[in-house]
Simulated scan of single mutants.
Amino acid sequence: MAPVFGSLSRRQLLQLGAAAGLLAACRPADGPELLQVEGELPAAWLKQLPGPWRARALANPAAVQRAGFAAGRPGPGLVSLSDGWASGLGRERLQSFGAPRLWARLAPFSAGVSGLFGPAGSGELAFPWAYSPWVIALRSRPDLVARRLQGWSLLLDPSLRGRLVLPSAPRISLEIVKGDFGQLERLRAQALAYDDRDGLNLLLSGNAEVAVLPLQRLIPLLRRDQRLAVIWPDSGAPLSWQLLLRPAAPQDFEPTPPPLEWLGAVLEPPLLEPLLATGWVPPLPQAVLEPVARRFPASMAALLLPGDALLGRCWSLPPLSLPEQLAQQNLWDAAAPRP
C-alpha cells in the first residue's frame, strides 16, 4: 500500500512539519512546570510533586516573574513568588485555581491575599501556602528583651544607633512607624544598613545587635544559637506571604489543572511538622496548628502559634497606587539622615 503522504508535494510536507513543530513548542516537553526562586520552596514538599510535573529554579524573583509571565507563549503551570512580587502582576495575567474546598481550610486572615486584594468573589488567584511576620531579632541584648512590651519603639533605643539593620524595602519601615514622620526620622538615624537579605549575617557576626527580619528565617536558628531572641510586637506586625500562582494560558491553549492533592499536602501531617521546624507556617486555624506546634520548645511554639488576638492585629500589604508610592517615597527621602 502506498504511503498516506505519497500524493503530497514537498512544499506541503514542509508546511505540515512546521505546523507540527509549532504545536510541539507549545507543549512542555516533560510535563507541566513549577517555576520557583532557588531555595524558596521546602525541599520535603517539592519531593512530593507528582509526575509529570517538574520543578525549575531560577536565581531571583525578577527572573521568575519574567520567565513565568512572558507574553505570547504558554508559561509554566505554577509560579512561586512572594506577595510583593505577585502584587505587581495584572489580574488578567492570572487564572483562578477553582478549588474553594482547599481554600476553605485556611484561616480567614489569608482571604485578602488569596484574591490578591481584589474584590470579593473574584476567585482564588493565589495559594498562600505560608506567611511570616516581620519581627525584631536581637543578639546578646537581654536588656532589650526584658523590655519587649515596648514593641517597635525598642528600635529607637539610643544604644542601637548604628547597630540596627532595617529591611531593604522602605515600606516595611514606614509600616512599623505607621507613617509617623518624626519616628521615621529617628528610625532612619539608627540604621547600620537596609538589607534583610544579609541582615541575618550582620546580626550573627556581631556587626549589628538588632535586625528587622521575617520570622521564617529565624525559627531554624533559635534552637542552635542561644544569643538570639525574637520579639513579635504585641501591637502587631506587617505580614509577608509565599504564594503559588497560575499564569493565564494563551487563547486556544488548554491550561494544565493544578495538582490540588499536592497543594493540600502542605497543610497537614506528615509535612506540617518539618515545615514548621524550618519556619514555614501555613495560614491554618490556630486550633489545627496547635497539636503540631506544641511539640516544639515553648519559646518557639509561642512564635509558631501566636494566637488569634495577635494575628488579628497584624496586617498584609496590598499593592499601592502610583500616588501612594510617590507619597511614601517622598516621606522616606525627607526622613533621610542629614550629613
Rank of each mutant, 00 (worst) to 15 (best):
A70Y: 03
D333M: 11
P274I: 03
R217Y: 01
P337V: 08
P133I: 01
Q48K: 14
L35K: 05
L222I: 00
P238N: 06
R313Q: 14
R246W: 00
P306F: 03
L204D: 11
A126E: 00
A169S: 13
L221K: 12
R163W: 00
E175I: 01
P158M: 00
P282C: 04
L202E: 13
C26I: 00
L144N: 07
A265M: 14
W103D: 07
A211G: 03
S140N: 14
F69C: 05
W280Y: 11
Q226W: 04
L155H: 12
V288A: 15
L228G: 11
G98L: 12
L166G: 07
L160I: 01
S80Q: 14
G112T: 06
V288C: 02
G77E: 08
G31W: 04
P42R: 13
L215N: 01
S132N: 07
R27K: 14
E273G: 04
F69L: 07
L215F: 07
D198L: 10
L81E: 04
R11S: 10
D196T: 07
G90D: 11
L81I: 09
D198P: 00
R93L: 11
G72R: 08
L245Y: 00
L276M: 11
L331I: 07
Q36M: 13
W262Q: 07
L284N: 11
E209M: 09
R139N: 15
R197A: 14
P119C: 05
R54A: 15
A99G: 08
G72I: 09
P128L: 05
S7V: 14
S82V: 01
Q65R: 15
V281E: 03
G68H: 06
W262C: 04
L204S: 10
L305D: 08
Q190I: 13
A71L: 11
L213Y: 06
F109Q: 14
L156H: 12
